[in-house]
Amino acid sequence: MKIAVCIGEGPYNHEAADSAYHFIRAALDRGHQIQGIFFYHDGVHNVNALMEPPQDERHMANRWSALGATGIHIVACVTAAKRRGAMEQVAHVELAGLGQLAMMTIQADRLVCFGD
């Protein structure tokens, strides 16, 4: 099954991005294809290349980058990122418009939204 995921909340402040990550890992383990991951609203901060969390904590942006390195299409909403000055993304993440969310949603069998 093709699954698209939309994440609308930032890292560390809220559990949403963690839930999304665990869900996606489980979906991959069950043999599903992730059609795309779209970071929306404050969610764009999840892939900020400038984050430096304490070393004994999970590194949210690197997690997403590692998923992107496996070929999963990861997009941060360009309008949301520009508004927030969050224009430096980790590797394997694309900046693009809401049209990408529309395409992912239309092409996937399922859309799962996470957020506050």
Binding site: H41, L98, L101, A102, T105, I106
Partner: peptide, 19 residues
């Protein structure tokens, strides 16, 4: 919060993609 504004924008764009 920004959600109403984003929801309207998303609705317009998803419609523009033929849904």
């Amino acid at each position: 919060s920004i959600y109403v504004q984003e929801g309207l924008e998303a609705a317009l764009i998803v419609a523009a993609y033929g849904a």
